[in-house]
Simulated assay, not measured.
Amino acid sequence: MANSRQLAAELGAALLARGESVSTAESCTGGMIAAAITDVPGSSGWFSHGVVSYGNQAKQQLLKVQASSLMDHGAVSERVVREMAAGAQALANADWAVAVSGIAGPDGGSPDKPVGLVWLAIAHPGGQTEAWSRHFAGDRQAVRQQTMEEALARLLDRVHAGASQA
């Protein structure tokens, strides 16, 4: 997989070519996706908002995640990550948004939600949101790094796919 700097630069070029923007909502990565994006010179032309919503209160207050979603499904779930992506997209009035929530470890896992489980979501222009989960191996930093790269790579793929449909 390409490194995060290359992925973010390619994402920026694709978004600029389309006149579109992206926002982020991050839990387990703690802002790593936004940091990779803002490492790209000129990223202010396609990125204005990144939310680190590590705690449930932040997810609710900043991204409008429903308390019932957190209670019924937990922070690391398809429902919550979809709501995070939609909330980040609305907050920034962005065309695209990417959201991540996971268990980076070394603690916090359970049989149902083991360490390394991450849910990711992308909110597309027009209201469609996709979500998927991955189970990454390695220590805390490895899980966070792989999550960031997965999010950027899938987002880049979706932006390119959207460009071919336009």
Rank of each mutant, 00 (worst) to 15 (best):
V115D: 01
V52S: 04
I103N: 00
I37E: 05
P114R: 09
V81C: 02
E130Y: 03
L16E: 15
S69L: 10
R140W: 03
G116R: 06
S4Y: 10
E26Y: 06
T147Q: 04
W132D: 06
Q60I: 14
A13S: 14
G108K: 02
E83W: 09
S53F: 09
V98T: 11
E130W: 03
W96F: 11
A151V: 00
L11V: 10
E149H: 09
E10A: 15
V98L: 09
T129S: 11
G126V: 14
A153L: 12
H160F: 10
H124I: 05
S27A: 09
I37S: 02
Q165M: 09
A161G: 10
L70W: 02
G102P: 01
H73C: 09
S164Y: 08
S164W: 13
V118P: 05
S21E: 12
E78I: 00
A131E: 02
L15G: 11
A123S: 14
G74W: 01
G12I: 12
A161R: 12
A161N: 08
E130L: 11
Q145M: 08
W96C: 09
A99P: 00
N3I: 10
A142E: 07
G50N: 09
S53M: 07
A14T: 15
T38N: 09
A123K: 08
D107T: 13
T24I: 03
F136W: 11
A75R: 00
G30T: 07
G108W: 00
A36I: 04
A2G: 08
S23Y: 06
A163N: 04
E20L: 11
G55K: 04
V65Y: 06
V22T: 11
N56C: 05
A85S: 04
R79I: 13
H160P: 03
A92T: 06
L155T: 07
N56T: 06
T129N: 08
